[in-house]
Nucleic acid binder design. Structure first.
Lengths: 233, 233
DNA sequence: TCTCATCACAGAGCACCGCTCTCGAATCGG
DNA sequence: CCGATTCGAGAGCGGTGCTCTGTGATGAGA
């Protein structure tokens, strides 16, 4: 893939990657706040102004790290899903949820970077939005499989969708899962927000004093969620 | 309350408050990252080093703002709960949930400060932990009222508590609600994490492209949650 | 009321940050 | 081989948190 490129081009691609790698290392050890272009430059033995030849600003570097983080998380979830037999729907659902948590715990600062408080004034470019949809899409994929099988259980409680919400869910369904009724999608979104809510609470220290360590609580909650969306047991 | 204090003491208390107020103003407009001691000092017409007589570091100022934010949120939730008749349990539950969201939307940066990614290396002092428990305690209070009435509905799905989780819930119950069985408390924690998960997703922009605006979704989800914890309808 | 310790504040300064500009050297395409 | 482009180094700007020092105001005890 580097064939036909000049030495300069190859050097540029390599350095761009090295800068990002070093930045990721610093992100992992000191968080997004502690990531400094000057420190990255220092670690790479170059002068700080040289970095700007590769990333025009600190924000662009962070964006690159954000995209990578979403990709890595999506890959982890996909792998977890595919590791189980297609027919084991509830198992797949649970595996996906657990893989997200495992990745988040293993990459706390990268998780915080993408699911923590956004930097004020930061406008997420299109590509990050696309990557961010990966995990929910995998969750929907499992749901679709269950729906296709006809084993997805109907909802059992009193909450009903308002007209506007049903409309939003139908619009969403058109884009990602045309056959799913709005009720199913609405519950999927509940499950989605719940999943990340738990993980954020655990990682951000809100669970200290209640269910910390939270392994068993997480397993339990994932089970509750599986029931909520109607996953067959 | 200032009686018996010297002029110096009163001036000190006043300035301490003024600094915090100005800091809160800056927090509201530019977020925690943008809060600068120097800017606060400038706005107050003093030199930056003078601030350190009142707050020994930026972190201490942030801690003061964090405590205030927890207090304000707790107060909002309490007020929402008390605004409804004691007997309207489901209404109280929903009102508390909505009040949290409303407060968060009206004070985005303060919400991000307390429920977003924590500053790396930041150790929450005891007082913030106490204040942080206010909202979940109010939720538990409504639950206890329903339990006392005998109208709390039993759980209806397949998820069962593991031994360790049941033990954690019992320990927690001893501290805050001795009569509640672990199953109820476990579900309350699910609801708690779900509530803040939704709000964070909404405020941090993760809902863009699915259910944004999310008013109706939130109302729906709160209803689902009420069912989940067994709130009578 | 005088005295002396304590306190508040201004200012200078340190080390860091993101970012810009300039300049000479290396590299490239024609 | 030559002109154009790219690159790295360095200096510099304005900002940050924080420390230190000197000076004047304030307060409590004699």
């Amino acid at each position: 893939m580097n064939a036909g490129k000049t030495a300069r081009d190859r050097a540029r691609a390599e350095l761009t990657a090295e800068i990002k790698d070093e930045a990721r290392r610093q992100l992992a050890s000191s968080g997004a706040d502690g990531l400094s272009l000057r420190a990255v430059a220092r670690a790479l033995g170059m002068v700080s102004s040289a970095i700007y030849r590769y990333y025009p600003s600190r924000e662009e570097l962070l964006t690159a790290l954000i995209v990578d983080a979403y990709r890595a998380l999506g890959a982890a979830a996909t792998a977890a899903d595919q590791r189980l037999p297609d027919k084991d729907l509830r198992g797949r659902w649970q595996a996906v949820c657990h893989s997200v948590r495992d990745w988040a715990r293993a990459n706390r600062h990268e998780y915080a970077l993408i699911y923590g408080s956004p930097v004020p004034g930061y406008q997420a470019p299109e590509v990050t939005i696309v990557e961010a949809q990966k995990v929910p899409l995998i969750m929907v994929r499992v749901l679709r499989a269950a729906w296709a099988e006809g084993t997805l259980r109907p909802t059992r409680d009193s909450a009903v969708l308002s007209d506007g919400l049903a409309e939003q869910c139908r619009t969403l369904a058109e884009a990602i899962a045309p056959e799913l009724p709005p009720e199913v999608l609405a519950r999927a979104i509940v499950a989605w927000t719940q999943l990340f809510g738990m993980i954020s609470f655990e990682l951000f220290g809100q669970l200290v004093g209640s269910v910390d360590p939270s392994d068993e609580f997480f397993t339990y909650a994932v089970d509750v969620l599986a029931d909520l969306v109607g996953m067959p047991s």
